[in-house]
């Protein structure tokens, strides 16, 4: 049942121009970043090689690419999640799902997985671009894997938060902007808090993605991102159930 809903979400995305535009714009910008980093690397190659412990091409090009992709997705995900429940509530199509013999959990997970499938495409494009470097020399595949896992978890957290906010309102623009605001706040938290041991800093999504970006799969960060997504998915289920009850 989850796969049925997920597949429908995935198909619906591509039925509208939105998915194509998001993919096209993301690819354009990411390709440009990728090529820019690559040319920087080639230009500075003589100097890099003089360093005692020179960074590889993967560290310079791929890590930068994924870091940039994370910021781009932070802006793109709210536009994709706003549809999921806000639009369905506004078009009154949510009734179809609610009157079907499926549980609220299945509906929420279906939509989440459907969107994640789409976001995995963006991730796939990043991986493919990075993999093309293998034509020129050896790559640090571990670093690429860590970045991929990190980015997937990160967009999962984005999507779960967006899904929740989308279930709160019928207005797609409000859902999109509120999600964007919340994500941005969680993103820049470490810029706003000076004290490095401050508890708020722990909430920063960027901080938790950073270690993946550097090639380190830390269970703390893994757990944080997973719990973040799970929390908001549970809240979404509860929110939808409360809608049936609310007076």
């Amino acid at each position: 049942m989850i796969t049925t809903i997920a597949w429908k979400e995935f198909r619906s995305l591509f039925a509208s121009p939105l998915a194509w535009i998001v993919l096209a714009v993301m690819q354009l910008i990411l390709a440009w970043v990728f090529l820019y980093q690559l040319s920087q690397y080639i230009d500075n190659l003589p100097r890099i090689q003089q360093l005692a412990n020179p960074p590889g091409i993967t560290e310079i090009v791929v890590a930068a690419l994924f870091g940039f992709a994370a910021i781009l997705l932070l802006m793109a995900v709210p536009l994709l999640t706003m549809r999921l429940f806000s639009e369905e509530q506004r078009n009154k199509t949510l009734t179809l799902l609610l009157s079907a013999p499926v549980s609220t959990t299945e509906i929420v997970l279906g939509k989440f997985v459907g969107l994640l499938l789409f976001l995995a495409l963006v991730l796939g494009l990043c991986v493919l671009m990075s993999a093309s470097l293998a034509l020129g020399g050896p790559l640090d595949w571990g670093l690429i894997a860590a970045n991929s896992v990190g980015l997937l978890l990160l967009v999962g957290a984005f999507a779960a938060l967006g899904l929740f906010i989308s279930s709160l309102t019928q207005h797609t623009v409000i859902a999109a902007f509120a999600t964007f605001g919340a994500l941005l706040l969680l993103w820049i938290l470490n810029g706003l808090v000076q004290d490095p041991s401050h508890a708020l800093l722990y909430l920063s999504l960027m901080k938790h993605f950073d270690s993946f970006n550097r090639g380190m799969v830390d269970t703390t960060d893994l757990a944080y991102l997973l719990l973040f997504a799970a929390t908001f998915l549970v809240l979404t289920v509860r929110q939808l159930d409360a809608k049936r009850l609310q007076a």
Partner: peptide, 14 residues
């Protein structure tokens, strides 16, 4: 149960 609400719940993009 088969249900047709007041506004038919149709996904217009399909």
């Amino acid at each position: 149960i088969g249900y047709l609400p007041e506004t038919p719940p149709l996904y217009r993009e399909l």
